[in-house]
Design a protein around this nucleic acid. Structure first.
Lengths: 247, 247
DNA sequence: ACCTGAACACCGTTCAAGT
DNA sequence: ACCTGAACACCGTTCAAGT
């Protein structure tokens, strides 16, 4: 009744309420993901998450080993979705490595676009081992990556190089794309406004006068070609890997 | 005398102490950068920063408009260093655009390697305008980028494409490189250990048995070729841009 | 077995009050 | 003009106590 963050699922659901799933690690993580999708990462606290579940914050500690463990669980759950898509949509083992990397790239991009507020978490949290590279930070996914490329002719050396450049490519393009999507969704978190003149479009109160090129190109810069650029860069990367393998 | 984070500059420096710079936004930001370099981003709180400066936390609010504004100031200060290097080391206006992008790429990489704990901040904070792309998120730097490339023959359309692919490239490669460097420096922040068997190298307690390729390649994966890979990917990107401009 | 009340240490932030 | 004490609302987390 104080913050505006709760109001979604108001009633803590009295004992007789029908569809109340019992508390579990799964349910907690799913609820947290949904919560971050709607309110942004900084809004996620143990106490608010408890309220969302109709329970006190302390109850969560039975299923989740502290806040850091919760974030870890969220990230694991997200990348596990990749594996699910792999099994369900893509049972065909006969496709080439290029088609596989195309599929994988689009699957990760789908994740980033569906959960722009969570992608920075996937991108910046230290993975379980230092040689795991976000966003391809799950052992199962990486094993699958290696297996697929090796069975299509990559040497050990090449597949490691491919893993490195592919993860860097995904991270750079998708983190920037997610950031733009997340900017609208994720709430202010802005430096306290100190009573400046209230321009409606506060975002554009930059003085571009000293930067003529930027000023002239602002419109072009604002155009969204994320999809086409991603495809183009992906193709170029695949060509690069192809030169690898044949040289 | 409780946490182990203070002990660096123990004496709050009595009034007679010699070199005590007066409090200012500059000093606060510099101290914060140094603090994060040593203790990691999550350790930075207004109260601890105050202590580091020999002052109560509330005093900081005279110079800094809240914590978010402090982080903003840190990021601005960091990217401003790029401009400094540009003016000091690189007065030669006759170099080609490729040499300029080489210089810029290495300057940003230098930032990432000197401040691995701060680079994620530069990478993931929403910039002042949605069309600014980290890590090239300063208007002065972007204007310089545009000016240099345009005066070397880039069209408006090409320079915008170049800005997009160049920033994605820097972000992907450098965020991953900084993450590895930061993993050692930045303190635990790990999910509370629940009394598992205490392996000395807790990092390697992953069970790699189900992932034979990963297991076999672990050593190769752990090798550090960040420098060479960065140079290679940079060259490939420059070639790609070259094809742009001449086609 | 599962949840909670009360407590603790620590946050960011405000503001009247001190010098 | 500059700093601080005290206070407020909010955190994460623990643990004995309730059912």
């Amino acid at each position: 009744m104080s913050s505006d963050v709760e109001a979604d699922r108001g009633e803590p659901a009295g004992p007789g309420a029908s569809g109340r799933r019992p508390l579990s690690r799964e349910l907690i993580i799913e609820t947290a993901i949904d919560f971050v999708d709607r309110h942004g990462l900084t809004a996620l606290t143990m106490r608010r998450l408890g309220k969302q579940l109709g329970v006190e914050a302390m109850s969560l500690y039975r299923y989740v080993n502290g806040r850091e463990d919760l974030l870890e669980g969220i990230v694991d759950r997200m990348v596990a979705e990749l594996q699910l898509h792999r099994d369900h949509e893509n049972p065909d083992a006969t496709i080439g490595w290029q088609a596989y990397l195309q599929w994988l790239a689009h699957a990760v991009r789908g994740l980033a676009r569906e959960h722009p507020n969570l992608f920075p978490l996937i991108a910046t949290r230290h993975p379980a081992a230092p040689w795991l590279r976000p966003p391809l930070r799950s052992l199962r996914v990486v094993e699958d990556f290696f297996d697929t490329l090796i069975s299509r002719g990559f040497s050990d050396t090449r597949v490691v190089l491919a893993y490195r450049s592919f993860s860097s490519f995904l991270l750079g393009y998708l983190l920037l794309e997610a950031s733009v999507l997340g900017a609208r969704s994720s709430p202010p978190e802005e430096p306290l406004d100190e009573g400046d003149s209230h321009v409606p479009n506060a975002d554009q109160n930059l003085d571009l006068a000293p930067f003529p090129h930027v000023r002239r190109l602002e419109e072009q810069l604002s155009e969204d070609h994320a999809g086409a650029e991603f495809e183009q860069a992906l193709e170029d990367l695949l060509d690069r890997l192809d030169r690898f393998i044949t040289e």
